[in-house]
Design a protein around this nucleic acid. Structure first.
Lengths: 238, 238
DNA sequence: GGGTAGTATATCGTATACGATTTCGTACAT
DNA sequence: ATGTACGAAATCGTATACGATATACTACCC
C-alpha cells in the first residue's frame, strides 16, 4: 500500500511489458531495496550505510550500490560525506518541520489542481478510508492511523495533472515516512480534528469549490498537524 | 552570476576550507561540469550523453560520470533509459508549462517566507536590478533581460529560511535555464508588465504586507508570464 | 599522566576489463 | 521489391582490483 506513494514514474519505465520476474538493473534494484528499507524503517535515521556491506547483502558489487545511493542522496533520503560514507538522513526535528512545511505547500497545490478531476467514486473511496480512521480513534493505533492518513491524501492529490508537482508530493511523503513518523504517535490529540477536516475537505471537493479555497484548506490541514507537533514538542513534560 | 542559483548547498560541503584548486571528487566535478553545460546550453535538450565520450573529454573514467548522470537524472535534468543512455531532457513545451506552474507555486511560497527577512539594502539592490531591466526595454535584449530577471527574483527568495523550499526553487530555475528559455524572447510584450509587477512586489515587501498577499502576488506574477507564453503559443501566426 | 605523532584498519574513489543488450546494416528468402 | 533474420558495432552494466583518505588505536615523548 505504501507503494502507491513510493514509486513516482521514473522507475518501472524501462521494461513495462516484460515478465515481472526481472525487476530491472541491479542498480535500480539496489535503489528500490535501500529506499524501501529506509521508508519501512529497518534503516533508521542516522544509520550508517556501508557500501561493501550492502553490496554483499544484496549479492552484487559495490558499483550499482554507489549509484543507488547517489540517487537517494539527490532525493534527500540519505546524507553523503566525501570519503566517509552515507547515513540515513532525518534525525533532526527541524528537518521534520521543514519537510512538513514544504509538503503543506506542495500538497495543497497538488490537491487543488487534482480536485476537479476527482470523480464521485474516488470521493467515496476517500470517505471510506476516513471512516476507517474514525473507527481507529477508539483503540488508537498511531501506525495504522498514519497509514490510512497517507492513503486518504493519496486519493486526493493523485489526479494532479502536473507530474512535477506530483513527484514532489511523493518525495515529501517519502521523507516523512523515512523520518519514522507515525506522526500521530506524537500528537494523538490531533487525530480527531484531522478526521473532521478530512470530511470538510471532501465536501469542498464535491461542491466544486474554487481552487484557492481547496488549496488553502489542504494547506491549513497539514500546517495544523505541524503546529500541534510543535506545541507538544515545546512542552514535552506531561 | 548563474551560479548564485545553480549551487544549492549539497556541493562544496566536503572540503570548504581547503585550497580551492582541488574542487572535489571526480564524481562531483563531472556532475558540476555536465550540469553547467546543460544550463549554459552547450548540451541542448535532446542531446545524447554518451558516457565514454564525456569521460574522455573530462579525462577520467566512466564510473564517476555514471554517478554524476544518476544524480542529474534524479534532478530531472536528464532522462535515462536502460541500456540505451541518457539524453538532456527538456524539449517538450508541455514540460515548460509544468515547470513554470511548479515554480510559480514554490517560488511564491519561498518569496513570502523570505519577505520578512529582506532588509532595506537588499530591496535597494533588487530595485537597482529592476531599473536595469527597465532600461533594457528600449533596445530589447531577451537574454540579458532574462538574466536580470533571474537575479531580481533571486534576491527576493534567497532569504527563505526553509532549505528544502529554497532547493526546489533553485531546481526549478535550473530546469528553465536548461529549457533554453530566454523566455522573454518568446513573449517580449510581457517584459514591460513584468517590470511594473516587480516594483509592486517590492512595495509589498517594504510595507511588510502579510504572507498570503505576497505569496499571491509572486505566484500571479509568474503565472502571468506563463499565460502570456501560452497565449502566443496558441496563436503563433502573426 | 596527558598529549601528540605515527601506524593500522576500515571504507571510500576510480580505473580497467569484460559480459550483456540494444541498434543498425546487410543479406537472404519470399 | 519487401520483409525477415542474422551479424557487427556501439554502448551500457557490473565485477574486480588497487590507490586514496579518514578514523581509531597505540606507542612514545614531554
Amino acid at each position: 500500500m505504501a507503494d502507491a506513494v513510493v514509486a513516482p514514474s521514473l522507475e518501472t519505465k524501462g521494461e513495462a511489458m516484460r515478465d515481472d520476474v526481472e525487476p530491472g538493473s541491479k542498480s535500480e534494484r539496489a535503489y528500490a531495496s535501500i529506499k524501501a528499507r529506509i521508508i519501512e524503517g529497518s534503516f533508521s535515521p542516522g544509520y550508517r550505510l556501508v557500501l561493501a556491506k550492502i553490496a554483499e547483502d544484496l549479492g552484487f558489487s559495490v558499483v550499482p550500490v554507489r549509484e543507488a545511493i547517489r540517487r537517494l542522496e539527490a532525493e534527500g533520503l540519505v546524507t553523503f560525506e566525501r570519503n566517509v560514507g552515507a547515513t540515513v538522513s532525518g534525525i533532526d526535528p527541524t528537518e521534520y518541520l521543514y519537510t512538513m512545511q514544504t509538503l503543506s505547500i506542495i500538497e495543497g497545490a497538488a490537491t487543488a489542481l487534482s480536485a476537479p478531476l476527482i470523480d464521485s467514486v474516488a470521493v467515496a473511496r476517500a470517505r471510506a478510508v476516513n471512516a476507517q480512521m474514525r473507527e481507529c480513534l477508539d483503540h488508537f493505533d498511531p501506525v495504522r492511523f498514519t497509514a490510512l492518513n497517507q492513503e486518504f491524501h493519496s486519493i486526493l492529490f493523485e489526479h494532479c495533472p502536473n507530474p512535477h508537482i506530483l513527484d514532489l508530493v511523493h518525495r515529501g511523503w517519502n521523507r516523512l515516512a523515512a523520518l519514522r513518523s507515525s506522526t500521530f504517535r506524537f500528537v494523538p490529540g490531533r487525530a480527531k480534528e484531522s478526521v473532521l477536516e478530512h470530511e470538510a475537505l471532501l465536501k469542498l471537493i464535491e461542491s466544486a469549490a474554487d481552487a484557492d479555497t481547496i488549496e488553502h484548506a489542504a494547506r491549513s490541514h497539514r500546517s495544523a498537524t505541524l503546529d500541534a507537533y510543535l506545541a507538544q514538542a515545546s512542552a514535552p513534560v506531561e
